[in-house]
């Protein structure tokens, strides 16, 4: 649904831009392509790695790791798992909901969801090109510990 809104925005934007200035519109499209192509090699590598990682560690394994009785170790395992994994939200949330039903704890799931979104080990090569290595590592480490705090707070509030 939201994707359609984005397409509509992009098309309207392009139309207005084309109407106002053809040259600039062409420049914008060139820029769009170059930006996309600049991250493509790393993105393809990420897809392959994640494709295999999820095949090797299926949801079953994840379920065992994150059970409510897994405690602090489970939270840390969940945070690590979320850090190295990359999956779209519409895959991650149904997985998390299924895990919740099959007995995973709120604390573990919050850690998993939060690091999944904020910490990206596999995207470090792309992020490094943007912010440099120092800022990239700092941001990811800060986000990791922040996710642990989120996990504890959510475990207390919801658990």
């Amino acid at each position: 649904m939201f994707t359609y809104i984005l397409y509509a925005l992009a098309i309207i934007g392009l139309a207005i831009s084309f109407f106002k200035d053809r040259q600039k519109t062409k420049a914008a499209l060139m820029k769009a392509w170059r930006s996309f192509e600049s991250i493509l090699p790393q993105v393809l590598v990420i897809f392959l790695i994640i494709g295999f990682a999820i095949a090797i560690f299926p949801p079953e394994t994840i379920r065992k790791l994150l059970g409510a009785e897994s405690g602090v170790l489970g939270v840390i395992a969940a945070a690590l798992l979320g850090s190295v994994t990359l999956m779209p939200g519409f895959v991650a949330f149904p997985l998390a909901a299924a895990l919740l039903k099959s007995g995973a704890g709120y604390m573990q799931l919050a850690a998993f969801v939060s690091t999944l979104m904020m910490v990206g080990v596999v995207t470090i090569p792309i992020e490094r090109k943007t912010f440099g290595m120092r800022a990239t590592l700092t941001r990811n480490i800060a986000a990791f510990f922040y996710s642990l705090v989120v996990a504890v707070v959510m475990g207390v509030v919801l658990g």
């Binding site: 984005l6 925005l9 992009a10 392009l14 420049a27 914008a28 499209l29 392509w33 930006s35 996309f36």
Partner: peptide, 8 residues
């Protein structure tokens, strides 16, 4: 659409 918006 994301990259087109980026270009614009």
């Amino acid at each position: 659409p994301i990259f087109i918006l980026l270009g614009l």
